[in-house]
């Protein structure tokens, strides 16, 4: 086993794992049900994207990607802070989900929530 094989296998596996993570988080962004849920999921999407960029940095050997990842982290934090301020200033809109579903372990996908 040489270094190249190990690295390409590991980064490939990591990309696969993060792909799955990305889609799961995106499902939460679409599904909601509340605005704070979506904000948390978007924050998580940024974290996953940083991971993606770091892996791409390893695969291509361009150290510049690391700077891009750090910059994305900065912007992501600012976005989350701004969205949190929006939630605080808007309050709870009428009609939005008020209570989470009763059982967390079994969640049927198509069930009506309200």
């Amino acid at each position: 086993m040489d270094a190249g094989t190990i690295l390409s296998a590991a980064t490939g596996l990591a990309l696969l794992l993060m792909c799955a993570a990305f889609f799961l988080t995106a499902w939460r962004v679409v599904r909601g049900p509340t605005l704070p849920d979506r904000i948390v999921a978007l924050d998580m999407l940024v974290a996953t994207a940083i991971g993606f960029i770091a892996v791409v940095a390893i695969r291509t050997g361009f150290a510049l990607y690391i700077d891009i990842a750090i910059a994305l982290g900065l912007v992501g934090f600012l976005a989350t802070a701004a969205l949190a301020r929006f939630v605080a200033s808007r309050g709870l809109p009428g009609g939005e989900e008020e209570e989470a579903p009763p059982e967390p372990t079994r969640r049927r996908p198509g069930r009506a929530r309200r």
């Binding site: 270094a3 990591a14 794992l17 993570a21 988080t25």
Partner: peptide
């Protein structure tokens, strides 16, 4: 170089597993 590659590989895969589990948590928690 093999040692370095192994260390990098372990870090990358562990990071990937944690990211995936965090996403699972974001989906499953109530």
């Amino acid at each position: 170089t093999v040692l370095l590659a192994l260390a990098t590989a372990v870090l990358v895969v562990t990071g990937g597993v944690f990211t995936l589990l965090a996403a699972v948590g974001v989906v499953r928690l109530p």
